[in-house]
Design a protein around this nucleic acid. Sequence first.
DNA 1: ATAAAAACCATAGAATTTATATGGTTTTTC
DNA 2: GAAAAACCATATAAATTCTATGGTTTTTAT
Lengths: 222, 222
Amino acid sequence: MKKVRILAVDDHEMTTLGYKFILEDSDFEGFKVQMDTAKSYEEATKRIEEAAKGIPYDILLLDIQLSNPTDGPAKTGEDLGVFARKVSPDSKIVFMSSFSDNYRINSIMQAVDPEGYMVKTEIDQKSLQAMVNTVLNSPPYYTQKALVAIRKKMAQDISLDENDKKILYHLSIGTKTKDMVKFISLSLPGIENRKRQLKSLFGVEKQNDQALITASRNRGFI
Amino acid sequence: MKKVRILAVDDHEMTTLGYKFILEDSDFEGFKVQMDTAKSYEEATKRIEEAAKGIPYDILLLDIQLSNPTDGPAKTGEDLGVFARKVSPDSKIVFMSSFSDNYRINSIMQAVDPEGYMVKTEIDQKSLQAMVNTVLNSPPYYTQKALVAIRKKMAQDISLDENDKKILYHLSIGTKTKDMVKFISLSLPGIENRKRQLKSLFGVEKQNDQALITASRNRGFI
DNA sequence: ATAAAAACCATAGAATTTATATGGTTTTTC
DNA sequence: GAAAAACCATATAAATTCTATGGTTTTTAT
């Protein structure tokens, strides 16, 4: 019987073990699943590279949050996705995220364009099996909460440039406007002016930053 | 038992009858379906308005192509969707389209933001039932081919302004560049220049219009 | 094959948009 | 209630995009 090879990456071993038990015990039509697991960015890249030299993985299940080594640059699941696309372009990539947070989904959809996106609270035996079948035969597979975020994004044509997105991001993490000049190559009045425009764009003219944050969140930008 | 009221609009009566037979005979948990049908834009608006005065429809199934009366302005399913959102805001709207064509999906997602989108070749008893349940409980519901188009759009951050979209649209329907000045409020060199920029944006520099059309289609703009 | 049409390109200058510098007022925060 | 931050306004600078114009190359039709 044909073998489908899947690599699951998550720093919680229980999670990857769960995937392994469920999928290796499942009855698929015409194939059996063989799972490998990895617990860190480094281990994952090694395995993906190694496999790509011979038979690449059919599916990569990537957790978005990966704990990082104390030294070295912090690497996210998104980075891993970008890496995997490059070295193993035929592998299907599925993100397993704890959050259905809009900002992250948008960013991953653009940086990696994965074949699947599952929100962890929605993962169970049935959805895992459906995901494997769909991703192999006719991607994409998104769970319901991911779809809600995607729909939100699709429903509007507002597209912000990098500076606008940075401003919203920094607002959302509490950076003071006057400090943003350190991260964004604009003058302070430039940033203030863009904030004004964003407020107007989102229909919260003459209101404070909290209103802008709420509006951006509702519209799926952060 | 609770009754869920659905209006199906399609100028092919066989289609709406099919929906009716399937859904009225289905066993749903906790409710029964009662279907009305309409064959034209006019009939549909009347029924929706009428219902909205009392108990609005729970779900509206709208065909995108509606044949039009010989006189009067041509009305599409999209127009009907916009109308329905206004007069019956609590109704869930689901589009039933013959095509999975990107341009149309994008446009409908922005103009109406429907709770569901089904490509007709993918509709069967099971998907209809799933659609009703999903749309009522946790929208959205999109069939696989709709998802493919949506994914394509999400995967890129390129957003074109109205003029760019008009240029691409007119290119796709064969309008000559020199004639576009009649439809687009730009000078001819202006249009030419935007075409150049679009080609560069889509990675088909120094190529002809056909290449631009193909690229835009691949990226889901037309 | 060739004439006509359309597409394509380049550039100077006009118009528009967006940024900055500066200095002020209002709102928040402690 | 004082200090900090946010907010606003305006003049000027910079950057972008448009138009007008005139040309070259490619496509189309006979």
